[in-house]
Design a protein around this nucleic acid. Structure first.
Lengths: 211, 211
DNA sequence: GTCTATATTCGGATAGAC
DNA sequence: GTCTATCCGAATATAGAC
């Protein structure tokens, strides 16, 4: 490892990569994710098309970098937010934030959460960021009472549903975002009801044993 | 209108269109929706590529026909099912059927419910089928008690969420389908609770007036 | 690292004969 | 309706000079 964090060459390179990624998002938003062209992307950052290959080995690599970039943005965003305090309110904020984040950028949502590019799969390294986010979500859900895998699966579906409807039918708006509180209430009431049902069942079993 | 339903020329043409559509779905499932190539499609149905233009004026037209085809399949499917009887059970069946239908064919789900092809929008004629299905869903939800637009919006999000997770993370499986009953219970319990909350509020208002 | 030049392949669409 | 032939454009990727 001769490379250093303050190596000016490395810094310039990373800055260029960041610039390319930023422009890639702009083009993706305009034309769709699959329609991003390396020629136009190169133009937009003041390079000739073959020079992009200095920074990305292939177009797949570019998508992978965008995937990682999107999840880093999401993780950074969640870090600026506070999901401690009352678990129900925290979960509502988490859901609302997430749906808003998705609704604010359709193509980012598509790349991060849908299979919209045929054949694209993130690298292990990039996918680790997705897992990191998933674990964060699992924690917030767990603190509020959703502890089983079924609970988590149902909650992910609630997130996906609001996000999907928000991005597809009211991009940039709040038509589905604003149901976050209602959906969390609905979810937690159900979790409670199930916990009680299970407790009663166990209670009956205990009675059986005592007989 | 000289054309007749039994016109053999028209029948042959419609049969060919159906054959082309069927093969288009096969290719879309294999390579992704956006990657369907007219050359390969023509090969698959025993035609040369330019001859496809006899049946479809453009590629966009082909997508539009696939869109209509998918919604017709969905409407036909729902017609074979019974959504009368106990409203809660009917709604559960409806949700479960729908999620299964989506999970069984990722690309069909993408074309019918997501914005996966940049720039594609269905024609008015095809979109009418989507509206027809939406109205059917609204009816099933309404019979079970979800009458406001908010109720319908929330329910569509529940459908979208289960379908999205099912298709993306367990295609062909049942990991999210099997939560349909739980999700409907959750939803209807919430609708009930809200109705009661509103009733109590109105009650209070009445008391106010009587004071 | 950036360039020019180019390879290679493929895409959708049209013209016009039969 | 189907064909051959072709247009035209665009795509990703590579070779090699500077």
């Amino acid at each position: 490892m001769t490379a250093n964090v303050t190596d000016p060459r490395l810094q310039r390179r990373q800055a260029k990569v960041a610039q390319i990624l930023a422009e890639a998002w702009v083009l993706a938003r305009r034309d769709g994710l699959a329609a991003v062209s390396l020629r136009e992307l190169a133009d937009a950052v003041g390079l000739r098309q073959p020079s992009l290959y200095v920074y990305f080995a292939s177009k797949r690599d570019l998508y992978d970098a965008m995937f990682a970039d999107g999840y880093r943005a999401l993780l950074d965003y969640t870090r600026t937010r506070d999901y401690s305090g009352d678990p129900r309110q925290a979960l509502t904020r988490f859901l609302s934030d997430l749906v808003q984040f998705c609704g604010d950028d359709l193509v980012r949502y598509q790349l991060l959460f849908q299979r919209t590019i045929p054949g694209f799969e993130p690298s292990e390294r990039s996918f680790a960021l997705a897992v990191e986010f998933y674990e964060l979500g699992r924690e917030v859900v767990g603190t509020a009472g959703g502890r089983s895998q079924d609970d988590v699966d149902v909650f992910t579906a609630l997130v996906a549903g609001l996000a999907e409807q928000q991005t597809a039918n009211d991009p940039g708006g709040r038509r589905w975002v604003r149901h976050s509180g209602r959906v969390v209430d609905m979810f937690l009431a159900d979790v409670d009801r199930r916990r009680q049902a299970t407790a009663i069942q166990e209670d009956c079993h205990e009675h059986d044993h005592r007989r």
